[in-house]
Computed example of a mutant assay.
Amino acid sequence: MRYKFTLLVAFFLLLNGCMTQAPIKTVSEVNLKSFMGPWFVIGHIPTFIEKNAFNAIESYELNEDGTIGTTFTFNEGSLTGPIKTYHPKGFVVKGSGNALWGMQFIWPIKAQYKIVYLDQDYQNTIIARDDRDYVWIMSRQKKIDQDTLKNLVKKIEDDGYDINKIRWIEHSN
């Protein structure tokens, strides 16, 4: 009996060590037409391609086939550095209220793209991932007022991110 109890405790300790954080909740519904257009990246926990990004803008276009044409542009290394442009394609996950996408930079891999915050006027948004490795705060404007920004950072922290890893992006005037 003692042996079974020890095995049971060891199993639950092992299982607990293998558990990851709960998935981050998306917004309930996204009107894709309202979401389309340019978004200024205000702050992020960057991927390797955007670690030195300035003037970062992510633009979306709804394609006839329902996919999302994406153009990500930024200056590399400084406000006047060389312009880099990427064109990943977004694939909306059916049944997600348009809030969960797969973002494909290279076929066949689709990275998780979760719209976890979106204000009612479609002016500010947060894109996150369950792995809590990358996050993006984006706005229709180059700057966000401090109270709004504080609330967005709090949301990211509440979702389990290390907010000390956020990199703030400069934009030219």
Rank of each mutant, 00 (worst) to 15 (best):
T67G: 05
L79C: 13
M103L: 15
Y86V: 11
F91H: 15
G69I: 03
K33R: 13
N52D: 15
S59Q: 12
G37S: 06
N55G: 08
L62A: 06
F40N: 15
D65E: 07
P82R: 13
K51P: 04
F40Y: 15
K84I: 15
Y60E: 08
F48L: 07
L32E: 00
I57N: 07
T80H: 14
F105P: 03
A53M: 04
T47E: 09
P82M: 06
P82Q: 14
I57H: 05
G81K: 10
P108I: 00
L32C: 00
V41F: 00
K89T: 15
I68A: 13
L100F: 11
G66Q: 10
V92D: 06
I106W: 06
L62H: 04
I115M: 06
I45A: 00
I68V: 15
S34N: 12
I68E: 12
K89F: 07
E64H: 03
I57D: 06
F72H: 07
K94T: 12
K114G: 04
G90W: 03
A53P: 00
N31R: 09
G77Q: 12
I57Q: 14
N75D: 15
W101I: 00
Y113H: 02
T70M: 13
F72C: 07
T85G: 08
A111L: 14
Q112W: 01
M36V: 04
T80M: 07
V93Y: 10
M36P: 01
